[in-house]
Simulated assay, not measured.
Amino acid sequence: MSLSISGKTAIVTGAAHGIGLAIARHFVDRGANVMFADIDESRLKDEFADTDTSEGPVRTFAGDLCQKLNVANLLSATIDAFDRVDILVNTNRCFTPCDPLDPDQTVLDDMLQQNMKSSLRISQLTAKRMIAQAEKDGRTEGEIGSIINISTLASTRSQPETLAYSIACAAQEQAVRGLAVALAPHRIRVNGVSFASVMSRSLQDALKENAEWREEIIEGTPLGRIAAPNELAETVQFLASSGASFTTGQIIRIDGGRGLLDAVQVPVF
């Protein structure tokens, strides 16, 4: 079984912080060309202040991927830099608590736009590019691309303050399954990774305000700790590689066993 992604080109969204950054750097370390995409331009500049991003395996793109033009520009920048795209990893997401009894749907609309619609749009456009590449290359057999979405355990949990976020995460996971079926005839695989108890940027920020949550998470996680972002990267690499050539439409849970118990009242970010 080959887990190699060497020589492939990947777009990783949400790649300036936490989980997205860890995955993107892991891919570069494994020999892939990677476009680091994020809305946070200053963070991207700081992260690569000592790196020449005009050549080599690393490029950066700053823009709000909820805007259709930015999605098109991201794809164009990737093709200009690397001439193709083989892997898309959507880690771009955000969390906003909400009042579940508030009839104002602004938070829900924002969560759906940020966490599901934007990743769906970029997945659709990237898939079209992958199909066009295969036609141009005359590739009639074998896999031509892999798309991986990052979600959370919130998709299956019902905590009042995370209602909008949970709906958006569940919608994102359903998008994985729907796209997997739609793109299977085109030889593009679509999968997801659902996490909990991972030290994402959102969790870091939350622990600054609620230090007691750390112990609650650890006690409610059978493996007894909070995972580091790079622990998701190996699973994402597997899904992107030929080692997962017969895997599509799956949501793989990386949560240290928390979902088996989940007596924890701490929201999953």
Rank of each mutant, 00 (worst) to 15 (best):
S158A: 15
I79M: 09
E41Q: 15
C98K: 01
T152E: 09
G249R: 00
S54I: 00
A263Y: 10
S146V: 08
P267A: 13
T156W: 01
A228P: 00
A164M: 01
R84N: 07
A180I: 09
N230E: 14
L74T: 06
E231R: 06
K68P: 05
L120S: 10
F195S: 04
N149W: 01
I148A: 04
N90I: 11
T91E: 12
A10D: 03
R187K: 15
E161H: 09
E143M: 12
I254K: 01
A15L: 06
P229V: 07
A32P: 04
A182C: 04
C66K: 14
I218V: 15
A227S: 15
D205L: 08
R25T: 15
E209N: 08
L153V: 07
L74Y: 07
C98D: 15
R187Q: 15
K45G: 14
I150H: 10
S151R: 03
A15Q: 04
G31S: 03
N230P: 00
G31F: 06
I188C: 03
R157D: 08
D40M: 09
S241T: 02
L3I: 09
S54C: 00
T60Y: 05
A49Y: 01
G178E: 04
S123A: 13
E215W: 01
G7H: 07
V58N: 02
Q172E: 12
M35W: 07
E173S: 03
Q237E: 15
Q105A: 14
A134C: 03
A168R: 09
T247V: 14
E47L: 14
E135G: 04
L21D: 01
F269Q: 11
F238K: 03
I5T: 13
A164L: 05
A77P: 04
A227H: 05
Q114V: 05
S151L: 05
A10C: 02
L88S: 03
K128Q: 15
Q237C: 14
G259S: 10
R225I: 00
F48I: 08
E209I: 02
Q250M: 01
D29E: 14
T248C: 03
I23M: 13
K68E: 13
I11A: 05
F36G: 09
V264S: 15
S245C: 02
I19Y: 08
T156C: 07
E219A: 15
F61M: 11
R214I: 02
E212K: 08
D110W: 03
L239Y: 06
T106E: 13
R84Y: 05
G138P: 10
P97V: 07
T91D: 14
L101N: 12
V176P: 03
I251R: 04
A72L: 10
L179G: 06
L207K: 04
D83M: 11
R214L: 06
S2N: 12
I87K: 03
T51R: 04
A164T: 02
R43Q: 12
A206E: 12
D104K: 10
A154W: 06
A16F: 07
L44C: 13
N230I: 11
S202R: 07
Q204N: 10
V268N: 13
R25L: 10
S151A: 13
D104N: 15
M116H: 10
K117W: 10
A164W: 04
G14S: 11
G249L: 00
V28F: 05
D52K: 05
N149F: 07
